[in-house]
């Protein structure tokens, strides 16, 4: 018995060791270094212990607290657009694609997932060119539909820039919920679906009554992945609007606020310690979201062994 327990220990250890080693050295160790940085301030070349002073500065000095609140609000807006647009459309596309009699399935699936394969930098550039009044593609297209009066330089206006960016991001990332949910729908055994059909369920009832409850864990998973992705977002805003979240900080999110504070710009000097502090605030927000997922959502959802 004793040797069997020891063997089990070595099996578990050997399964876990490579992943844990790389993860600890290249992820955890640098992040702990970042956390440590938040308790210090830079004085010339020296790092001086400053306790919680960086946090006090960030939350209570108007110069920073205004930017923080603005970025936080924008980030939540960015997330809500994803939840309202990206995930429902993703589920709908996955549901339609999983209908066995649908034709051109492979073609549709490949095309829908295509934007997800592109780099954020490339997507940013593509949409910037298309929406640019200089090129005139979007005004031309709207004009052809007799909707020319709707055209505005959406990325350049304070009122529309953030919504436009969010929709660009939705356009790119919709493939992720679609694919996850599609895989979950396909893994539902035929017997369960046949049983529901024999009970007289039509396609609509089959989806709402049988498939949706079975894929609930995957839907919750896509929601939390969206949350994490959105609160880590940076590249799209940086590529199209720059580190200042133009126009007039209307597209500034936590990622760009952190980057700007960390590396500095023409308005203020770079502050490594304050940048790290913003990073820790982002960490805390995501921690709250993930905790809600792990300890509330995941426990209420029934997971079926299929």
């Amino acid at each position: 018995m004793h040797s069997q327990a020891r063997r089990k220990f070595w099996i578990i250890a050997s399964l876990l060791a490579p992943a844990l080693a790389i993860y600890t050295v290249f992820m955890i160790y640098p992040l702990v270094g970042t956390l440590q940085t938040t308790f210090y301030q830079t004085d010339g070349k020296l790092q001086v212990f400053a306790g919680l002073d960086n946090y006090r500065k960030l939350f209570f000095e108007p110069l920073f607290s205004h930017q923080l609140l603005n970025a936080l609000g924008n980030n939540f807006y960015f997330f809500f657009i994803h939840m309202l647009v990206q995930n429902p459309i993703g589920i709908a596309l996955a549901a339609v694609l999983s209908v066995p009699t649908l034709r051109f399935k492979g073609l549709f699936r490949s095309i829908f997932f295509l934007p997800t394969m592109l780099s954020v930098v490339v997507v940013g550039f593509i949409w910037q060119l298309i929406l640019s009044p200089l090129w005139g593609v979007s005004s031309g297209l709207l004009g052809a539909l007799h909707l020319g009066f709707l055209f505005k330089p959406w990325l350049g206006l304070e009122g529309t820039a953030l919504t436009t960016l969010s929709l660009m991001s939705v356009w790119q990332n919709i493939g992720i919920p679609m694919m996850l949910i599609y895989a979950a729908l396909l893994s539902i055994p035929d017997e369960i679906l046949d049983a529901a059909r024999i009970d007289g369920a039509n396609g609509w009832e089959l989806f709402w009554g049988t498939k949706l409850p079975l894929i609930m864990p995957t839907i919750a998973l896509t929601a939390i992945l969206t949350f994490i992705g959105n609160f880590n977002a940076f590249d799209l805003v940086f590529a199209t609007q720059g580190a200042l979240g133009l126009p007039n900080f209307s597209t500034d999110i936590l990622g760009t606020f952190m980057f700007r504070t960390f590396f500095g710009n023409n308005l203020q000097q770079g502050d490594l310690n304050l940048g790290a502090t913003i990073a820790m605030v982002m960490f805390f927000i995501i921690l709250v979201g993930v905790s809600i997922y792990l300890f509330v959502v995941q426990r209420r959802i029934t997971s079926y062994q299929l």
Binding site: I28, L31, T34, M282, L294
Partner: peptide, 21 residues
Amino acid sequence: LYITIGLMVPIRLGTVAILKL
């Protein structure tokens, strides 16, 4: 839980330490 930490923190936040390493 230890592995879940990596989901929450953008690895970019550790850039300075990664660069040194």
